[in-house]
Design a protein around this nucleic acid. Sequence first.
RNA 1: GAGCCCGUAGCCUAGUCUGGAUAAGGCACCAGCCUUCUAAGCUGGGGAUCGUGGGUUCGAAUCCCUCCGGGCUCACCA
Length: 555
Amino acid sequence: MFKKEVEKILKKYTKLKEIPLEIPSSSEFGEYAFPCFILSKKLKKDPKKIAEDLAAKIKKTNLFEKIESNGPYVNFFINKSKLNDFIIKNILKGGYGNKKEGKTILVESPGPNTNKPLHLGHLRNMALGLSISNIFRKMGNTVVNVDIVNDRGIHISKSMLAYQKFGRGRKPNKKSDHFVGDFYVMYNEKVKKNKSLEDEAKGLLIKWENKDKEVRALWKKMSDWALKGIYQTYKEFGFNIDKAYRESEYYEKGKKIILSGLKKGIFKEGEGGSIIVDLEKKGLGKKVLLRSDGTSVYITQDLYLAKKRYDDFKMDKLVYVVASEQIYHFNVLFEILKMLKYKFAENCYHLAYGMIYLPEGKMKSREGVIVDADNIIKDTIELAKKEIKKRFKLSKKEVEKRAKIIGLGALKFFLLKYDSFKDFVFNPKEAISFEGETGPYVQYVYARIKAILRKSKKSSKVDYGVLTHPREIDLVKLLGKYPDVIWQASEQYKPNLVAHYLLRLGKSFNLFYESCPVLKADKKVKDARLNLILAVSYVIKDGLGLLGVGVLERM
RNA sequence: GAGCCCGUAGCCUAGUCUGGAUAAGGCACCAGCCUUCUAAGCUGGGGAUCGUGGGUUCGAAUCCCUCCGGGCUCACCA
């Protein structure tokens, strides 16, 4: 609103079509700044002089406090009373920052394997999938969370083989995905000394493919165990999926697509009767789509699944949350989808995320050097309990409740504050902290606000013109940026923008808190401040919600 | 070998797409602030050749090129 007004004025006075308006780094330069360098070439004048002339020429309306030149810039100072009024009222109305994009978006995440429990990488995946979905919804889209369950293949056969050989028909005596995972680890131990196990595992896979009854029964039993445990972890983490697609049901499909593509001349025959796609022009080389023996490869299934999902949901956009190791794979997939002229093909996106390293190196679940998801969740919540007990005497139930929100909040926030494509090191001892740039820091701000609001009464008529303290102004201005931040996060697939915004907002509130007492202020100021912090609490709750992080009234 | 990604204080990050005013935070370290709305907080301090070298520009952490360091990928694997 204010920005448009400034642009309108500048267009009128400069005759420029586009106004490169800036938001100054410091508030001593006002709310908006116009750099005059661009005009200096045209007018062949010193930019300082241009700024001076412009500032003198522009007629000031009551929307502005002042408009003045500062070096080569023209600085616009918005009337704070109007600024406060506009932003705070807007927030208190509800639905602040909501948009109405009206698209249907599918988000695939996290793609578990049914031979072992989830690990830290899956947590990063879920955190990203969850938050980007929330952000899309906030933009007014319908989001469907889909999953791909990797429940077939040699890795599955390995845990099956170990169970067959050493499980003695036992039933899970622990969380069932961990029970299954133990056999996967056992296989990898045993195979070091007995290489023939590799062939046995392959044999099991062939039997599975031939639908051998006994093998299928074992497979179903173990898949169910694995999934049951994995879904418990989803639930614990606050993650939900709308539809799961199982690889076992689709791995053979997709041949039709390939064959019809061959007829149309989109694909070619390769050596030995295989079918390939030539993506040399795109710099992606040649890829096999059907083997010489007519069987599918991984990408064949992905092609089918993409089409299947379109048949199921008619989505406008398809987002895959998958580790960055698969960037090449998705580049190929998306190119082929475009060649096949699917409507959604232009709107596929691979939300790639980087590796997570342990202090001792790269995670390898195969070797059992694993950061187990359940353990991480449990440890973080335990840590939160300790912190709570240090501060308050509460009932066990209350401690549990708070610890879960704070612990999970810390964990999710930690996973989301990094740019998704960056690798990072996860040091369990240091990574999950509750101080500094963390989820609890932001949650704490919310609790502080609630503590003040509990001790006060609402007032109907409020004059926001009394909010003139620099820290009040900073806070209001930051609140004003929220809609733009979440829109950027949605456009760029970057939940970390929301996380960093909330940290800034939290910091800004804490600064305000230190120097602007609310309850002890004069009535008029108090009422205005109460509404200001109420607005802050709205934005914090909403923003944390986008990250899948909850808030507490007291902590 | 080729393609893609990353390189910002001792450590971790933001800013890079869309170039602008003294490069913004956190951790750690040092010194302070709880009879006053929750100290999971706040204040002050030291600490940066924005990997290197060029180029474009009135102006470069940001755009282009070179090189260096690290990672991922390039299967009739998934």
